[in-house]
Amino acid sequence: MDFTFLGDMFASLLKGLPLTLNFWVLSLLGGGTLALILNLMRTTRIGNAVAGAYVFVFRGTPLLIQIFMIYYGLAGFGFVRQSFLWPFLREPYWCGLLALILNDAAYTSEILRGGLRAVPKGAVEAGRVSGMTRFAILRRITLPLAFRQALPAYSNEVISMLKATALVSTITLMDMTGIARAAISETWRAVEILLCAAAIYLAISLLVTRFSAWFERRLSPWHFGRTTP
């Protein structure tokens, strides 16, 4: 094995790390916010139907097709190019981010919905009895309980999104995967390059797994001191 090459490769792949992290963090933030809105919408009948259709479409189709539809598909319409959104949609960065946010929101909203369903009715009633406002109940009872419930599933989604960011390389963006693809076509040393890139992604997702396991334990006071969960 050629260690100088591997070293150089790691160095140049790491140049793509900021963009990968950027997409990852922002799509989780944006997706999480949108997921919350989708769940609030579910309290009305029409909102429920809209949110249901949204989740159905975005979970039922591959992310790659969503990225292409936003990047190449939308730009094909004249009115999109005339609109105020064009300065954003013109840039591959915003198209990629938009696709990731929309995709993440669909999955996260289902995870959150499962968490919300698991919130005991009694807890909410107790809040109401003690005179909390609806917003206070949401903020201090429902969401924290739902979030704790949804945490294991959500940490899977967090790792999925890290992996999903690799697909933005298909619309000319130079994230870690984009750099790896370009390097492959230049040097033809595909296996070494791909293994380097895989190692970096793996290291990050291991960190996340460790952190979320610790976080879950922290948020489960009733598990303290017990050897099995």
Partner: peptide
Amino acid sequence: RTYPNGPDVYQDLMNGR
């Protein structure tokens, strides 16, 4: 900006990107 498929260059040229 490098594209995985040749025709996409023209597509983005026409789209104004």
